[in-house]
């Protein structure tokens, strides 16, 4: 089966995210003062061929642990859907 996997990689909570801060300041300057706790991460999408959804997720987790995310500074979330 083929799965479409959406990977969301975010800077770990508690670590300084200067990009998020800069965007937050820019939003405030544009009149969106209600925007708070802005964080900037990265989205990665990929097709994964696997026998089951669980297998697709397990393999993508390995990809994240080895390459797609840095375990020191980033956390990731997976969303797997059939394609």
């Amino acid at each position: 089966m083929n799965f479409r996997v959406h990977v969301r990689v975010m800077p770990r909570t508690g670590l300084l995210d200067p990009q998020g801060q800069a965007v937050e300041h820019a939003l405030a300057a544009l009149g969106f003062g209600e925007a708070d706790d802005v964080r900037v991460g990265r989205a990665i999408e990929l097709h994964v061929a696997a026998p089951t959804r669980a297998e697709a997720e397990a393999r993508t987790r390995q990809m994240c642990d080895k390459l797609l995310a840095n375990p020191v500074t980033e956390d990731y979330l997976l969303q797997v859907e059939e394609s």
Partner: peptide, 11 residues
């Protein structure tokens, strides 16, 4: 080596 190098605080 341990740790990581992230975007400069001043961007």
């Amino acid at each position: 080596l341990p740790g990581a190098l992230m975007r400069n605080a001043g961007l």
